[in-house]
Design a binder for these strands. Structure first.
Length: 562
RNA sequence: UGGGGCGUCGCCAAAUGGUAAGGCAGCGGCCUUUGGAGCCGCCAUUUGCAGGUUCGAGUCCUGCCGCCCCAACCA
């Protein structure tokens, strides 16, 4: 990856370098601020990547801060699940794991100060009344009748909010800015509200909670964050972010909010709302269903976290919010990583029996096979070979088309790491379906090379029938066949467009026995079939594999063209 | 229709007024004990459109067109 160095800096790194060069900052501090209200998905990877990689590249630090200001939606379960996902992704926050709720006392003091400075007021309007006065995109809003309360009255009321004297919705603290602003978040935004819920960390200590706009900029300031990186939909809130820091006279250098484009993919959905729909309607098996784009699902499917980080760095950072990455780009990164690191094994997805007629009935020999041709240090393993084998049905065609290099009557091919074999006879059942191949082998070609130098055009994978371990194998395809699942005609829901073939289950797939020894959680390659990982549904008696991603299939393309 | 942002190859994305990088996909070929991997080559006379400024414009100016975001006591 030496070309990495030549890649141009993205616009955020340019800002960071300029801030370092000008002396505005000497240490870069970023932060990744998830709300613990659900599962992380692949889109979140980008924010984790950009915040942590910038901190690492410039010798700074990246904080983890759970943005837990809405107790009604959050829980310790989500905190723990998200932490597990982040660690798996390789995000190491070290000593800098925080919660916005750590700052509730300071935030409350800041709110009091804002009132004292005449920049905030307690509003008695109901939610509906506030909404009615907000105005529209083109019309100014109407000021609250409570806007001009005295500092003393506001202080008293706000302290009584804090004391728990008011019910949710009865009183709220609002910043006093400009109801006529064309920037909607500047129209006297609420900054504290009454919430009747038990917070997962502070319990019932606080009857009031700060809203995002108030909590976020100040939490950044408290932590000394220099660059507060968020996605583009927050751009409209930047004026408010800066207004609050200014109104409280937060000392320079203040944290600076910079927005970047989110990571979107074709053929899937990322929004929490839609993912929840799939899970709750039992359209998938759970939050870690390997068809889903959640981190838990990708992990279960066998995707290496490095592939995700690599994808983020290659896709890059811009301000094009509509940018949508083709899902095949993710497949490429997964293959690229796994090709270099994954061990190879032999296994058959759709078995067809092969009998080597000139091989002794009772003999078994162990043949060494390369664990990873890309990695000289990966060594070899012994694979048992015997008279009766399984091969894949796709590797035999009785009447082969042109360019078909695999098995057919009278044709010699190589069995990977074993021998050259020639099909002599085809056995069929009453329906005329091929159920068995009779072959002969050439003992001189042991290991896969012919001493006389003759060549074969095809190399086929195989498994010794007597030694095979059987597995259930789950094959996956895109969740939605359409690139954009929301490009729908009237009356059609995105749910209606789920790909019915996104999961295909094969029940009895013979694999070489050493697959059973692979540590849980590792992803390996079944040669010519794809990359697979052991699913947690596996028991001592029942092996379950997920296909992480297939191999590039050039033959499929040739065959398609005829 | 107010505000904010964005339009460069099918997708992502460089180019910071000096003559359109790179990756993915695709297409040829070489090589190969995975039809994998690897290697080589091809793939934008042109940057949404129309004008203008300039010796020179994807970059600057003007006007159009298109797309995205913003009206939770969510984040």
């Amino acid at each position: 990856m030496s070309d990495e160095a030549e890649r141009p800096l993205d616009f955020i790194r340019q800002i960071v370098e300029a801030d370092l060069a000008s002396g505005k900052h000497t240490t870069i501090v970023t932060r990744w601020p998830p709300e613990p209200n659900g599962y992380l998905h692949i889109g979140h990877t980008k924010a984790i990547w950009i915040n942590s990689s910038i901190a690492a590249e410039y010798g700074g630090r990246c904080h983890l801060r759970f943005d837990d200001t809405n107790p009604a939606a959050e829980s310790v379960e989500f905190v723990e699940a998200q932490k597990e996902d982040m660690r798996w992704l390789g995000f190491d926050w070290g000593e800098h794991g925080y919660f916005a709720s750590d700052y509730f006392p300071q935030l409350y003091e800041y709110a009091l100060e804002l009132i004292r400075r005449g920049h905030a007021f307690v509003c008695d309007l109901s939610s509906e009344e506030i909404e009615a006065r907000r105005g529209t995109l083109t019309q100014a809003g109407e000021e609250s009748p409570f806007r001009d309360r005295s500092v003393e009255e506001n202080l008293d009321l706000f302290q009584r909010m804090r004391a728990g004297e008011f019910a949710p919705g009865d009183r709220a603290l609002r910043a006093k800015i400009d109801m006529g602003s064309s920037v909607l978040p500047m129209r006297d935004p609420l900054i504290y509200r009454v919430v009747d819920a038990v917070h997962h960390r502070t319990g019932s200590e606080w009857p009031i909670y700060p809203l995002y706009d108030f909590a976020h900029c100040l939490s950044d300031a408290i932590e000394g964050v220099t660059h507060s990186l968020c996605t583009l939909e927050f751009a409209d809130r930047r004026p408010l972010y800066e207004w609050i820091l200014e109104a409280l006279d937060i000392p320079e250098p203040r944290p600076r909010q910079i927005e970047f484009n989110p990571l979107n993919f074709s053929h899937t959905v990322l929004s929490k709302r839609f993912l929840r729909r799939l899970v709750e309607d039992d359209l998938v098996s759970g939050w870690d269903d390997p068809r889903l784009p959640t981190i838990a699902a990708l992990r279960r499917r066998g995707v290496p976290p490095k592939a995700l980080m690599s994808l983020c760095s290659k896709v890059g950072v811009t301000r094009r919010e509509e940018a949508t990455v083709e899902l095949s780009r993710l497949d490429f990164e997964i293959r690229d990583e796994l090709n270099r690191t994954a061990q190879r094994r032999l296994g058959v997805l759709r078995p067809l029996k092969v009998v080597i007629e000139n091989y002794p009935e009772d003999e078994t020999e162990m043949l060494p096979a390369l664990n990873n041709p890309e990695d000289a240090d990966a060594g070899t393993r012994d694979v048992p070979f015997s008279r009766e084998l399984w091969i894949d049905r796709d590797d035999f065609i009785e009447d082969p088309p042109k360019k078909f290099n695999r098995m057919s009557v009278g044709r010699e091919v190589r069995l990977r790491a074993a021998y050259f074999v020639t099909t002599t006879e085809v056995v069929k059942d009453a329906n005329g379906d091929v159920i068995e191949l009779r072959c002969t082998y050439d003992p001189a070609t042991r290991g896969g090379d012919a001493p006389d130098g003759r060549k074969v055009r095809g190399t086929i994978h195989w498994v010794s029938a007597a030694h095979a371990v059987d597995a259930e194998i789950r094959l996956y395809d895109v969740l939605f066949e359409a690139e954009d699942p929301f490009d729908l005609p009237d009356g059609v829901e995105f749910i209606d467009r789920l790909n019915p073939n996104a999961l295909e289950t094969l029940t009895t797939c013979p694999l070489e026995p050493s697959v059973a020894d692979l540590p849980a959680g590792t992803t390996f390659q079944l040669e010519r079939a794809g990359y697979f990982s052991v699913d947690p549904d596996t028991t001592a008696e029942h092996l379950v594999l997920n296909r992480t991603v297939g191999l590039r299939d050039t033959w499929a393309k040739i065959a398609r063209k005829g």
